[in-house]
């Protein structure tokens, strides 16, 4: 992993990030997640998922998944297909509610929120979907304006400025009049990212942010995610099975298997783990 020093390691102000590697120097470190029923997590923990269980019919997808994310850090959840990564992420914004367990975000139980409280929480979270989930009947500009128009009191000029600024930030300022079908996969991901940050969220959730992209685009998108953390202090959870992406963005990595987080720590520590599932995943 000589490449690591030239990617994520070089861009992160190492040693200054809270919760970077709880065990220190690449050791595995168990999740510091409180028991169910023990009340809100500490203030520096922005997301805490406690013992989540979720089934769809006879299929158990989550079997006690737990993880904690500290403010201003990037957590990466890795795992094979069908391990429950996307289902885990959807509990953070109440797209799904657990059969058992507690999802805590910003000190409150998400699964118990309704109405305006839930709307307010969702507006503080940006979500980058796997396929971008851009509204295909709208242009790029309309996609972004749709959010601003409904959730802010900005004037038309201020909205245009915000859109231009955000598109420039993802280096796609010239795509405003284009429709999603006219964009490449990498561009759609970056526009999806621009739309996710247009309301200036505190937390970003990434569902396979680099799947299907070529290595150059993987690096571009991953470096944008790192900049969001470093320049704007956005906390994030990314689910991925892309090692290059994880290597660039992860402050702390978690490995999910059969609906349970089986290892947590730095990415290097996960790669060195003796657990047979991780050895198989990392090909070590």
């Amino acid at each position: 992993m000589a490449e690591r020093a030239a990617t994520g390691g070089a861009q992160r102000p190492r040693g200054e990030q809270p919760g970077e590697d709880h065990a220190g120097n690449g050791e595995l470190a168990p999740n510091r997640v409180a028991e169910v029923g023990s009340g809100p997590p500490p203030e520096d923990t922005i997301i805490e998922l406690r013992d989540l269980h979720k089934s769809f019919g006879d299929l158990n997808v989550l079997n006690g998944a737990s993880l904690a994310v500290e403010k201003g850090t990037s957590a990466v959840v890795m795992g094979g297909s069908g391990a429950g990564k996307s289902v885990l992420l959807k509990h953070i914004v109440k797209l799904l509610t657990p059969d058992h367990g507690e999802p805590w975000v910003k000190g409150k139980r998400v699964d118990e929120m309704t109405g305006d409280e839930l709307d307010d929480l969702r507006l503080s979270i940006g979500y980058l979907f796997q396929g971008g989930a851009l509204f295909d009947s709208m242009s790029v500009e309309e996609n972004m304006n749709f959010f601003l128009n409904r959730h802010t009191d900005l004037s038309e000029g201020e909205r245009t400025d915000r859109i231009e600024e955000t598109l420039s930030w993802v280096n796609l300022a010239d795509t405003a009049p284009k429709f999603p079908a006219e964009l490449s996969g990498g561009q759609q991901k970056r526009i999806g990212l621009a739309r996710a940050i247009i309301l200036q969220p505190e937390i970003l959730l990434y569902d396979e942010p680099t799947t299907g992209l070529d290595p150059v685009s993987v690096r571009t998108v991953s470096e944008l995610i790192v900049r969001l953390r470093d320049e704007r202090g956005i906390s994030s959870v990314a689910i991925t099975h892309d090692l290059l992406c994880a290597d660039i963005i992860a402050d702390r990595a978690h490995f999910i298997y059969e609906g349970e987080i089986i290892e947590s720590g730095s990415l290097e520590a996960l790669e060195r783990s003796n657990h047979p599932v991780l050895r198989n995943f990392f090909g070590s």
Binding site: L118, D119, R122, Y127, F129, A133, R150, H151, L199
Partner: peptide, 8 residues
């Protein structure tokens, strides 16, 4: 889902 998580 994108509409839902954007409180729309």
């Amino acid at each position: 889902d994108a509409l839902e998580v954007a409180a729309l």
